[in-house]
């Protein structure tokens, strides 16, 4: 791997992700229109080893925040620090799991998994071993030579997960990665994600519109206001014990109480966001 493993203390010189008054604008679509301000002065941190979910109404600029964290989109104002260093260009410490399918259709599951290793110039044999190891780890040891179109939605997500984790990023950015899956597959994948995360505690910024998913996975849930000019309006510690089973934890009184509190904070924004989609 290109980045040597460091002890957690050395990496933790500052929060993993530190958004400071980040403002994101998109240029106007037509002449005469005003620039669209998706995010306004958002301040948000993800500590080293912390699992933070961001929830918010549809179309509130959640994905925009992730793109900023990834370095794919440059903010118009404010700055973002990665382990204490101001981010310039792409975020090399982060792995990004997209909402849409991002596997290369002309490569097999195995070839997709080792893509990041190839880009880093890892020796072929070493990459193959690591690739097979990760395929096994996500339960696809038997499906390495299949093409994405021959895999189910859940299997494709497993490949994408292995593809993202194999390069061992310190930060994991996830944009509603399981939203396209049916509920059973989704809970399986969530449990699997938690198990993988538990093993080496990466810092995770997880975007979702599903509050239950957010609570059952996270250490902290941040609520965003309805767009445009989105900003965080609530920050909730989730003290539920780990390891968790995402299906079972939903039935505990502590979960229900958290759900009610956060939902109370969200409700108004969700209604606002919904009203905007109608207008």
């Amino acid at each position: 791997m290109s980045l040597p493993k460091q002890p957690k203390e050395a990496a933790a010189s500052g929060a993993a992700l530190d958004f400071r008054a980040v403002t994101v604008r998109f240029p106007p679509r037509q002449k005469g229109d005003k620039a669209f301000t998706a995010v306004r002065e958002a301040t948000l941190t993800v500590g080293a080893g912390e699992f933070v979910s961001v929830v918010g109404p549809t179309g509130c600029g959640k994905s925009t925040l992730l793109n900023v964290a990834a370095g794919l989109h440059r903010p118009a104002g404010g700055e973002i620090k990665i382990f204490g260093h101001v981010l310039q260009g792409l975020n090399r410490q982060a792995g990004y799991m997209f909402q849409a399918d991002a596997l290369l259709p002309w490569k097999t599951a195995f070839e997709n998994v080792i893509l990041g290793l190839q880009f880093r110039g890892m020796a072929e044999q070493e990459a193959a071993d690591l690739g097979n190891y990760w395929l096994m780890k996500v339960g696809l040891g038997h499906a390495g030579d299949r093409y994405p179109h021959q895999l189910s939605g859940g299997m494709r997500k497993r490949v994408a997960l292995a593809q993202t984790l194999i390069v061992d990023p310190k930060i994991l950015l996830m944009d509603e990665p399981f939203s396209a899956l049916d509920i059973q597959t989704r809970q399986l994948m969530e449990n699997e994600l938690l198990a993988l995360w538990q093993a080496d505690r990466k810092s995770v910024l997880f975007i979702t519109h599903d509050l239950e998913e957010a609570i059952s996975l996270s250490d902290r849930v941040v609520v965003l206001s309805a767009g445009p000019e989105t900003r965080p309006i609530g920050d909730f510690q989730i003290g539920l014990p780990r390891p968790r089973d995402v299906a079972e934890v939903r039935l505990t009184p502590a979960f229900l109480e958290l759900h009610e509190r956060i939902w109370h904070a969200m409700r108004e924004e969700v209604l606002k966001g919904y009203a905007q989609t109608l207008s």
Binding site: F98, D101, A102, L115, F119, Q163
Partner: peptide, 19 residues
């Protein structure tokens, strides 16, 4: 998305071209 994903995985411009 394919491009963004490959870039996040560390692809250079030449690797984007060939892969």
């Amino acid at each position: 998305v394919l491009i963004a994903n490959a870039r996040m995985l560390g692809a250079s411009r030449r690797q984007l071209l060939s892969h």
